[in-house]
Design a protein around this nucleic acid. Structure first.
Lengths: 216, 216, 216, 216
DNA sequence: GATGAATGAGCCTTCATTCAT
DNA sequence: GATGAATGAAGGCTCATTCAT
């Protein structure tokens, strides 16, 4: 085989491979969309793979060419949501002056994300129990979300701007409070405005954790 | 048959009946114990009746002589825990001077109960998702627990002693914060003392909801 | 051991044994009564041994001291009914002048028995299917009932007083027609008198099988 | 997409759909065949779905892709047989001059069908008991078969061409006599010819019910 | 001897997952 | 590569039958 032929084939393979990956990604997206909706509505055990496939527009077997298992679909959904939250948080927190401001802005970001993605919120609500105990694949995605919040709170603790000394707990509480408030928001028909929701959350969080409400 | 013989038999029957009931109760207890452990560890769908039976020391069929179905076992566990919480809360809240004090004391009570029954806490953690959406039989037992908290908060709102205007949300948030803090407590090895745990919770709750921390 | 002691013991044993047998018989009777009612109402598979025991006034285990199995209870019921029919038939047929008259009188007898024992009739109705094929214990009792009828019809055939040449079939048809007519009788509220019922049956049977209706 | 492509796809889809339906129908057929055999031999309760699946050449789950439940398989069998009988009866009865002739021809038709489908006959024999009492789903298919016979006999009664006044009873008797005769026919090895069988049945029926055997 | 509590074997049905096409 | 038909492995629950009392 000549070098040029080899190169050509590599390119072709590369192209094919890239096309393939693009398709796979598109498929994954369709599956995740359907699965998010269904997991939100019926929970993990209440969701059937056949239904996921159908709603995604595939045959079950096709679904299994892009996802290894039911759990891996679920994991991917968690992953996706977590990244969404992290991105939204990071975007807002970028210009924050203090550590506490970073927390506030992060929560603003994540709150906004969850309001915009109520199905993901609902999936989270089914999941709450797994937070602390289960080491299953289902929950591994959460580690990263916590880590961001945790390190932010750790800074706050260092600077003495918050009450409390366990950054992990504070991060978990923050998420729990967010989820609860948003769950209630859904429950009451999602009528309150996104901004009002968010500011109410921030106010509560400030009362709960910030050292002084008057001064930063 | 003489009167005395009749009386003797009645007494015997009474004793037998009481003995039978006692045994049934003991069996229920054994089943609930095993089921609580397993539901705590694996959740509702992840728990197998055969395993519950085995861990309770029975054959599957025996279990079905004291419980009608898997769901009824689960309901009984929820019921038991809810009553435990309500009792503990009521006991502490009895002498409370103000509505807000009642909230505080109720939380002291329920916090204590959950610390003493970590498996029930874990069951609750699996269940969280159902709060907002499902009105299934599984969660019906929760209605009572919420109602107590809710009406307490409603009183607080009337009296202007708390920030916020949705007693349902406040009750939910209180539960969520409790569960989260206790989950973290379990996660870190349950080392902190019961009292320290509880007072930390109370302090946080006060910051989050009470109108003024200096004055009542 | 002396001869007299031996004799005494034998007598005692005999007495005990007879008493025991009497009790056993009484127990059997109670069980059969309950079982007949239940088998009549729910059929074989739909009847639960626990229910039979309860309605008989025993514990399940006691029932199993007088009957080996569910099937043996069922068999006994069939046996009992079959003997009842045979006795009633034989009593009537005793003075019959001709073979055909014997048939008629037999049917009069069995018809009367079935009318007087509608539960046994209903058990038979559940059973019809087993007539021809199953060699299970459940059906063995029927052999005798058929045999009586069969031999009667065989005589009729010999004497040329009936149409047809298969005495077994004629016996089976006779039973089937009886059961059907009586089932309808039950279905319509058992209002028609026993005599009218019986005579209607006899008339039909005569039309169906007898060579000449005018002469014997 | 061009019009021709669209058309082509529609055609293909149509073909595929038809192929799928054909396969489903074929599967149903295989299941019914196996189930008929097993129900005939062991009755409803004595037949295991796993065995039905195995004898049909499927895994249990496959069977449940074509039938909803055990009962629905049974119902389908009854339905199938009842329709077979009705068709066969109707085909023969079409040109009948009188009501009684219609009865005769109907019986000729159903007799022929049952002779050709002895397993269905045996299923019927298990079912007999349900005639009189149960209005369960299992027996609902029978209503149609009875109704045909009943209305035929009602006409005969109106016209005074039969002895008796209860068309329901007459229909039931007719079925019982048919089943009995055919059961005997099976019992004796199914040796007699179909025609002889049928004519013997007709002759008997005529003797049993027709007003005058000489004149119509 | 009578009991009734206890059981194990089994049945119907479901669903995540995988070949044959 | 996509399919969807096919499946095996469970899982909840029942009931005829039997020991321990």
């Amino acid at each position: 085989m000549t070098a040029s032929a080899s190169r050509a084939r590599a390119a072709r393979t590369g192209r094919i491979s890239r096309a393939k990956e693009a398709k796979q990604a598109a498929y994954r997206e369709l599956v995740l969309e359907a699965a998010l909706r269904l997991f939100a509505e019926h929970g993990y055990d209440g969701t059937k793979m056949e239904e996921v496939a159908k709603q995604a527009g595939f045959a079950p077997a096709t679904l299994y060419t892009v996802f290894r298992s039911k759990e891996s679909v679920y994991e991917a959904i968690l992953e996706q949501g977590v990244w969404g939250i992290l991105d939204a948080s990071a975007a807002r927190a970028r210009g924050a002056a203090t550590a506490w401001d970073s927390v506030i802005e992060s929560v603003r970001g994540s709150h906004g994300y969850l309001i915009d993605h109520p199905d993901f919120l609902r999936v989270q609500l089914w999941e709450t129990g797994s937070w602390a105990f289960e080491e299953s694949a289902k929950t591994s995605a959460w580690a990263r979300a916590f880590e961001g919040m945790r390190s932010l709170y750790a800074s706050c603790i260092e600077r003495g701007s918050v009450i409390g000394d366990d950054p992990v707990l504070m991060a978990q509480l923050t998420l729990a409070m967010q989820q609860t408030q948003l769950a209630r928001w859904l429950e009451t028909g999602a009528k309150q405005s996104k901004e009002a929701q968010t500011e109410q959350m921030i106010a509560m969080l400030t009362r709960t954790f910030a050292v002084s409400h008057a001064t930063k």
